[in-house]
């Protein structure tokens, strides 16, 4: 589907023509309600629905592929960027390429995310290919939420690919959350880190019913003083299947930590294969993985505070993924 290049200079407010379903999903995936500060780009069913630039953030449509380039000026502070995607039609297969260029020393908060409402029986799919180029000393907080809903039997498929390049002394905190309702996901996240760069990635995933989720993460630290921390928390319910394969490579005097915790319920299956790969004697790498059911003593404690067994279970899962 072709990128709509017309720019609607509207805020995410009442004047913007978005249906109720899209509005609700924007709240869930991007915490957007009413006016949103900073730069905004909303994509709906494969087309641009709204775009606003800010003083230090410029968003332009790509000319070769569907997608956008987001440029954040060097040295700017506290900038906000929202680039959510909503899919509300069945049969849509939306592929989008978004590149982020973060200037040296910039400090920016980016909210992406995708909500699919599939009311039909044909599949709806969104594949977001995101690349981040962080110039030295820049700092990015990136939040991405994925969510599916809809009464149809059509699958809701989200296959995000995320690539990050952290220059010297750059730092990034990524929080990637799959809330619920996504039938199938294959997540690929990769990155490289120069000297003194710092990356913390938190991935939270909940699957239920017959859902499948695969997440591959692969980061390489090439400069001294780089650190990577991967925190993965997941809950698998029903007959769902999850496969995690995080890998951290250290090719310098660097530190890496991979920690995967999963709660397994019902007839679900969780496979966790954390890996660490040292190419330098100075690399300090650690991985931990644990899969287990909800701790009985935690349920009992909450029941002694008056919660029913079901309420206690829901509370524990909510906190685990919070």
């Amino acid at each position: 589907m072709a990128e709509n290049t017309a720019v609607a200079p509207a805020q995410v407010g009442s004047e913007l023509d978005l249906d109720a379903i899209s509005r609700e999903m924007l709240e869930v995936i991007a915490d957007m309600h009413g006016e949103t500060e900073g730069a905004v780009n909303i994509r709906k069913n494969g087309c641009l629905a709204c775009r606003t630039n800010s003083d230090h953030v410029t968003i332009t449509s790509k000319t070769d592929n569907p997608g956008i380039d987001i440029r954040v000026d060097a040295g700017c502070k506290n900038e906000h960027v929202h680039i959510p995607v909503v899919v509300t039609e069945e049969g849509v297969h939306d592929v989008v390429y978004n590149d982020f260029f973060i200037g040296a020393g910039a400090d920016v908060y980016i909210v992406a995310g995708c909500g699919i409402h599939n009311g039909g029986d044909k599949d709806a799919e969104h594949d977001g290919i995101h690349r981040f180029f962080l110039e030295p000393g820049s700092h990015v907080v990136y939040v991405e939420k994925h969510y599916g809903e809809g009464e149809g039997t059509g699958a809701r498929i989200l296959n995000p690919t995320t690539e990050v390049h952290l220059g010297e002394g750059a730092s990034m905190e990524m929080e990637m959350v799959q809330i619920k309702g996504v039938s199938s996901t294959v997540r690929k996240t990769t990155g490289t880190l120069e000297a003194d760069a710092k990356l913390v990635i938190t991935e939270k995933l909940m699957t239920h019913g017959e859902q499948h989720a695969t997440s591959d993460l692969d980061f390489e630290m090439v400069g001294d003083g780089a650190t990577v921390r991967v925190i993965s928390r997941s809950v698998a319910r029903g007959n769902s299947v999850q496969v995690f394969h995080p890998n951290v490579t250290g090719a310098a005097a660097c530190r890496g930590h991979v920690q995967c915790d999963s709660i397994i319920m019902d007839n679900a299956r969780v496979t966790s294969i954390p890996a660490i790969d040292a190419k330098s004697t100075e690399a300090q790498l650690v991985h931990e993985a644990a899969i287990g059911k909800i701790a009985g003593e935690a349920i009992v404690k909450l029941m002694t505070l008056g919660l029913t067994e079901e309420e206690a279970e829901e509370q524990i899962l909510e906190d685990f993924l919070s």
Binding site: R233, A295, K301, L305, G306, D319, F320, S322
Partner: peptide, 21 residues
């Protein structure tokens, strides 16, 4: 939980821990 609602409370000798709470 019903005993709890009736007004009984118990502080465990070995308290439970909760991830994320």
């Amino acid at each position: 939980d019903e005993r709890a609602r009736l007004g009984i409370g118990y502080g465990f000798q070995q308290p439970a821990r909760f991830t994320g709470m």
